[in-house]
Design a protein around this nucleic acid. Sequence first.
RNA 1: GUGGUUUUAGCUCAGUUGGUUAGAGCGUCUGAUUGUGGUUCAGAAGGUCGCGGGUUCGAGCCCCGUAUCCCACCCCA
Length: 454
Amino acid sequence: MSTQKPSIPKGTRDFSPQEMNRRNCIFKTIRLVFEQFGYQPIETPAMENLSTLLGKYGEEGDKLLFKVLNSGDFLSGVEESELTKDNAAALSSKVSEKGLRYDLTVPFARYVVQHRNDITFPFKRYQIQPVWRADRPQKGRYREFYQCDADVIGSDSLINEAELLLIADKVFGKLGLKVIIKLNNRKILSGIAELIGHADKITDITVAIDKLDKIGLKKVNEELAERGLDVDAIARLQPVINLQGSNAEKLSKLSDLLRNTADGPQGIAEITEILVLAGIMNISSPVELDLTLARGLNYYTGAIIEVKAADVTLGSICGGGRYDNLTGIFGLPDVSGVGISFGADRIYDVLNELNLFPTAARSTTRVLFVNFGGKEEKLSIEMASKLRAIGINTEVYPDNIKLKKQFSYADSNQIPWVVMIGEQERMDSSCILKNMTTGQQDTMPMGEIINHIV
RNA sequence: GUGGUUUUAGCUCAGUUGGUUAGAGCGUCUGAUUGUGGUUCAGAAGGUCGCGGGUUCGAGCCCCGUAUCCCACCCCA
């Protein structure tokens, strides 16, 4: 029998107990904050029908979908003449009708429409599940990763936007991570595109402007030209790209520039209102108006939100925005939603890089009972149950083997207390409690243990 | 999808112009200590050098292919 080298697919990862403890700490923090604001949990299947997913993320997104091959004879109904290289795209729709979810927002929209009669609007839901993208992995980019989404659907109020900013602020506050919250609005971007006479090129414009930090003004302008903008339009874009100052200053200048555009003034009014509400909510992270922010342009229609770690460059760790009519494509028009998504894996990477993980990175066991076998083992099991009953995580070593091995186990799992009940101790109803940090050990009545380890 | 890069013990990595039997640290295991871990000391186990082919008297090292890791682009959490 030939042995096989064990491996996992590209871009996926195993998580060790230590990593899981840390990851759970992130999930727990996010879940707690979501619940604090009244969001309710749902889950959706890892697989959706491809028809649900295709066409929702643009052409690029479709390519990044993991498709699931039909079970059984997946080639039935496929003509031999269709099995050609350049027919791959058309062929894939015939041999695959399911795909792994690409994000949590589209499945949520599908969920809302499908269960509309059971939902009370506005519906505030949260969802913490993995998503899959057939992307090429690199720093901070995985093919399987967790998103933690909170969305409100069925409410136009800007309070929701502000509340989501507060949620982000609270989550990162609890994690001890300094962040910058960036805010933009699709309507302002539309206004800008209209202003320079290229309303049709809003995507090209924003994609190019988005790189300002990275490649600089000169290259951005070159890219704009490559994307088909004339010299005049690029010239008229400069005042917008170069916009400086505080949020209020930027908004004031923008409001002047975009005065005569269709969407601009509305976008400015929305951002202004969100900032006012955010102010009332005492958000402690800086909230910056950033016109270069162009996330998820495919479906955002109002606010666009992004959160970046202040001390590390690692893409965005949280993003979101307002999407009008996302459910329209599934047959429920005129329902507006706004949501935010935390990238748990990137948050992990950032916390790890900054050494911000708290002490929780160890076994949660507080007490280990040494196993001496026989009557002593039985007694240890009983005592362990009593400790667990009062909320102390307790293990009994499963095998009666040499003490060296059992103490090593406690040591490498960083279990702080070890209890020994051997023959001697059993005889006089005592036990030995050892503090693994100091090395000190004392003989005491069994009932005394609790007083020492709490 | 495009470009670059990595791969040698469980882990992190050395390995000279191509030359006998491929090394270190950490970890693991055994013993010093048959009822005591973390420190110390003595010892041991552990390798198809990613995989497949080629050049050569001879390949961990050179050539070709392939997988994989990581990095950048595109795009994104």
